[in-house]
Design a protein around this nucleic acid. Sequence first.
DNA 1: AAAAAAATACCCGCTAAGGGGTATTCTAAA
DNA 2: TTTAGAATACCCCTTAGCGGGTATTTTTTT
Lengths: 206, 206
Amino acid sequence: MIRLAIAEDHQSLIDGLELLLKYEDGIEIVGTANDGEGLLRIVQKKEPNVVVTDIRMPKMDGIQATRLIKKEYPHINVLAFTMFDQDEAVTQMLEAGASGYILKNTSLNEVLQAILAVADGKTYYDGNINVNGGEAKVSAKKGLLTRRQKEILALIAQGKTSREIAEELFIGIHTVDTHRKNMMRILGIKGKGELLRYALEKKYNF
Amino acid sequence: MIRLAIAEDHQSLIDGLELLLKYEDGIEIVGTANDGEGLLRIVQKKEPNVVVTDIRMPKMDGIQATRLIKKEYPHINVLAFTMFDQDEAVTQMLEAGASGYILKNTSLNEVLQAILAVADGKTYYDGNINVNGGEAKVSAKKGLLTRRQKEILALIAQGKTSREIAEELFIGIHTVDTHRKNMMRILGIKGKGELLRYALEKKYNF
DNA sequence: AAAAAAATACCCGCTAAGGGGTATTCTAAA
DNA sequence: TTTAGAATACCCCTTAGCGGGTATTTTTTT
């Protein structure tokens, strides 16, 4: 018997899943939530054995919720069900402990297959994401920047000047500017504001 | 008989709608598409009398598709079904000719009610959006900038320099910079890159 | 028609972000 | 241990975007 909990801020999608599963033998939906916190409450109350969760949700995202769930209830299997196909999203979700990852542009029948697989202790990955041995395959572009560069890029996205970044990281402003130059060269971008634009677009592209 | 076409890049959502409607008397789904262009093709081939469409989709967004549909087939009623609750999104969709607007975090049953209403020539608006006499109520913040300022802000978001904007709009660079200054004062923002950050956030926040 | 708002245009000064480049030290990988 | 990569740091110069301000013309509203 699969006891299933679903977290998804789009209620219409939950409704669709409920329609799909209402006549499915061996599956019982024990609770649904529209945000990450609601999911945790259901997990505490009902102890499902499978959780289907979106990533971007109000109050707490699916990555964080998965982390907390797997920590407290390692036997619960988590399936990510999300629009994000970026490697970074996949990586984070798998690192949080999810054993499956399905995209929303996939059919509901495939979602059902994934739920069954994950409930059986297996992994299940959407054909349109990159996964390699349980780890998301890092794209060439994603791996171009170093740890430090990514750290500085995030601060740039927050609108901090080089001086502010230097003070925050206890390094010289010249160092920050050098990182900027190196990143622009590596990413192949030029022009005023383009690094900031890149930083912001990357943030919203997960 | 309601002949329905659905455009939605998340196939799982289409599947849910199909499950909901398959036993509904008087409704026939004549086609589904995962992008705006596919929607137009279905409309040409099948001439549905109701279209349900998302906004953000590959190849052509729902606003543009709605415009084209209403121009060619004014008798087709369009219902927007989207995650965007911002006034601007509602405004644009209604101006394009949609007669209904439903959010995805609403239940599927309400989607059915909206489809029935819209098919009947009525309007139907999700309770969580602002609509006033068929026009989205424009928020105070949204109305702070003039037409021209918004035009320039959009070009800034594209990464264009003041010089490039000046050349494109056939005005002087000083004029562009003055618009920049005026916008920053009006929006209450300060600092290098902050206008660009605002422009980009506004873009992604619809 | 008058008043208000919007658009256009300009001056000055400052600085943050590029863009060209060099070099040394530290850390990780081979 | 050696090599390669990353991090740190600096110089020079240019330019684009602020930030302070002023003014005129055009368009819209009253």
